[in-house]
Write a protein that binds this DNA or RNA. Structure first.
Lengths: 324, 324
DNA sequence: TTGAAAGCGCTAACAT
DNA sequence: ATGTTAGCGCTTTCAA
C-alpha cells in the first residue's frame, strides 16, 4: 500500500541497519540449509585440505558454507559425524570414508551423499584416478628398464590402497617385471625413513620404489641418502601424489599431479545436483598427470640396462657400494 | 497422561526409527545453533589446519560443529564470510585475520568473536607467543656466538610479522648483535630458494638466519646447500614455527614448537564462554618451546668465536670457500 | 497484483 | 508436577 519510493527508502534503511535474512528461519521453512557437510579423515595429511577448499569455493559463491567434520580415520567417529551433521546440511561429502559400503548406503537414505577418493555401490562419487596414474608411473619405470620394483603402499587397510596396488601389480606383470609389495605404512616421514633401512638390506637389489605418499617418499629420500644410496643413480623413487612438500627434494621427485581442488568442486556440484541416491549414480573421474622429474632414471648396471650414471643429476659424492 | 511404561516404549521406538531433534528448529527458538564459525586465511599453509582441528575437537564432543571459511588472505573476503557465517553461528573464531581493528570490533557487535594469532583491542584473543619464541631463538643464536643475524620475515604486511620482527630486533640489540632485516617473503619453498641466492652474495658474511616459515627454511636449506654452504658449519638456520615438514631436513632444524591445536581448543573455549565483547576481554597466551636440533651451531672462524666445525653434524662433502 | 494467514519443529512461558 | 499454548522469522498458500 506504500508508494514505490517509500518502499525503496525502507529497504535502503534496512540495509543500512545491517538487516539480513535469518538463515535459520529460512532453513526451517524451506527445509534446506545451504550447508554442505564435508567429512575428512584428518587435516594433518596435506592431501585433504585442498579438497575442502575445492568444495568451499563454489559453495560460498552460492551463499552456502562448509560444515566440517574430522573422523580421525575412525568408522565410529564417521558414523557419529554423519548423524551429527546430517540433519543440518543439504548434503554430505565423505572424503576417503572408512565405513563399510552398507553403512555408506544407509547414510544416503536420509540425504544426498557423495564420496570422494572412494566409490560405494549406489552412491555418486568423485574418484581421483590414482590407480590410472600408478599405471602411468609403473610404465614409466618399466620403460626406463626397471624390472624389480618395490611398491610401498598404505595407509594400512585403506580402500584406495587396494586399488592402487592392483593397478601396480597388473602394470608390472604386463611389463614383464616383478613387483615387490612391501607392508603398507602410515603416511609419515618416519615410515619412509624406516623403510629405507629395510630396502638397503634386500638380497636382490630393488632398482625402483613407488610410494603412495609424498611424506613417505621424503623419508625414503633421506634414509637412502644416509645409507649411501644415490637417487636416481642407484635407485629410482616416485610418488603417487604430488603435494607441495614434494618440491622439496633435491633432485625433484617424479610424482603424480593430482587435481585435488577440482575433485572437491566436482563433489560439491554432485552433491547439490543429486536428487538423493539415484539408480545409476553419477561418477566423476579426476585424471592425474605424470610429472617426470629427476628422481627416476634408468637402473644401475647389473640390471636390465646400462645406467647413464651422470646425465640426470649432479653427484657430489663418490659412488658408494651397494650394501648387498 | 500415559503410563511411564508406554512413555518409554514410545521413546524407544522413536529412537529406533532414527528420530532426532531437529537442530534447525531448535536453533530458531533458542537462538543458538551449536555451530562455531572458523575463518582461516588458507588451508594450504599447514599452520592453520591444526588450529581448525583444535577447535573442532572439543566442539563436536559438545554436539557442536565447525562452520569453515577460507578468506584467502583478503579483507573483503573476510568481511563477506563474517556476514555470511555470522547469523548461523554462536560465535566466530578469526584466525590470523587481515581486517583492520575497527572492522574486527564491528564484527564483534553482533556476536562473540575471538581472534587467534592476532589481537584486536576489546576482543578476546588467543596469542601464539611466537614473538616470545623469537626472543628465545635469538638468545640461542647469540649464545652460540652469532653477531650478524639475518631475519627473514613475512608474510608481507602481516600483523604477526611485525610482532616477531620487533622481538627479534630487541633481542639482538640487547645481545650486542646486528639484525639484518630482509624483505618479507611469502611462506613458500621457492622464496627460501631465492633468498639463499641473495644471502651468498652478502659482502659481510651473515652467520645465522632466522626465518618465519618452515617452508621457507626448507628452501633456504636446499638453496644454501647447492651454493656450497653447509648447515650449520658455515651458516646456522632456525625457524619460528615447527611444522611436520621441518622434520625433513638433514640435519634436523632448530625451530620453535608451536602448540597449534591447543590454540584452537582455547579459542573454542573462549568463544563459548564469552558473553559477547566484555570490557576487559580475556587473552590466552600459548607459549612456544625452543627445540634445538642440528641446524644451529657456533659461527665459523672469522666470526666472534671459534667454530667447532665437525662436532654437530656429519659432513660428507669437503668444506667449500664462501662466495664473498 | 498485493496483502493476510497458516505453519515449519521446536522451546519457554504459561495455566491447570 | 503436568499439559497447553504462543511464537521464534521466515516461505508459501490463499483470499482480497
Amino acid at each position: 500500500m506504500v508508494a514505490a519510493e517509500t518502499r525503496e527508502r525502507v529497504s535502503l534503511v534496512a540495509a543500512e541497519m545491517g538487516f539480513r535474512l535469518n538463515a535459520t528461519a529460512r532453513a526451517l521453512t524451506t527445509g534446506h540449509t545451504g550447508l554442505v557437510g564435508v567429512i575428512v579423515p584428518t587435516l594433518a595429511n596435506p592431501f585433504f585440505p585442498p579438497i575442502v577448499t575445492g568444495v568451499q569455493q563454489p559453495l560460498t559463491e552460492a551463499g552456502g558454507n562448509v560444515l566440517l567434520g574430522v573422523s580421525d580415520h575412525s568408522a565410529d567417529r564417521e558414523r557419529e559425524l554423519v548423524h551429527q551433521l546430517g540433519p543440518r546440511v543439504d548434503g554430505l561429502i565423505l572424503v576417503a570414508p572408512v565405513s563399510p559400503d552398507v553403512a555408506l548406503r544407509s547414510f544416503a537414505e536420509r540425504l544426498p551423499v557423495v564420496t570422494v577418493d572412494r566409490t560405494a555401490p549406489g552412491l555418486p562419487g568423485v574418484l581421483v584416478d590414482t590407480p590410472g596414474g600408478v599405471t602411468k608411473l609403473m610404465d614409466h619405470l618399466l620403460g626406463l628398464g626397471h624390472r624389480r620394483i618395490a611398491y610401498l603402499g598404505g595407509p594400512p587397510g585403506s580402500w584406495m590402497d587396494r586399488q592402487r596396488r592392483k593397478a601396480a601389480l597388473t602394470a608390472v606383470a604386463d611389463g614383464g617385471g616383478e613387483l615387490i609389495v612391501l607392508d603398507p605404512v602410515p603416511p609419515r616421514f618416519d615410515a619412509g625413513l624406516a623403510t629405507a633401512e629395510h630396502l638397503v638390506r634386500q638380497e636382490t637389489p630393488i632398482t625402483a620404489v613407488m610410494v603412495y605418499s609424498s611424506y613417505v617418499l621424503l623419508g625414503l629420500f633421506m634414509g637412502l641418502g644416509s645409507a649411501g644410496l644415490r637417487v636416481p643413480e642407484d635407485i629410482s623413487l616416485a610418488a603417487s601424489d604430488d603435494l607441495t612438500v614434494i618440491g622439496m627434494t633435491q633432485p625433484g621427485s617424479t610424482a603424480l599431479h593430482v587435481p585435488l581442488q577440482e575433485a572437491g568442486s566436482e563433489a560439491c556440484r554432485l552433491v547439490r545436483e543429486a536428487p538423493a541416491a539415484g539408480s545409476r549414480p553419477p561418477r566423476v573421474r579426476i585424471a592425474t598427470r605424470l610429472v617426470v622429474r629427476d628422481s627416476t632414471a634408468a637402473p644401475p648396471s647389473g640390471s636390465t640396462r646400462t645406467p647413464p650414471l651422470t646425465s640426470r643429476a649432479p653427484s657430489h659424492t663418490p659412488s658408494r657400494a651397494r650394501k648387498n
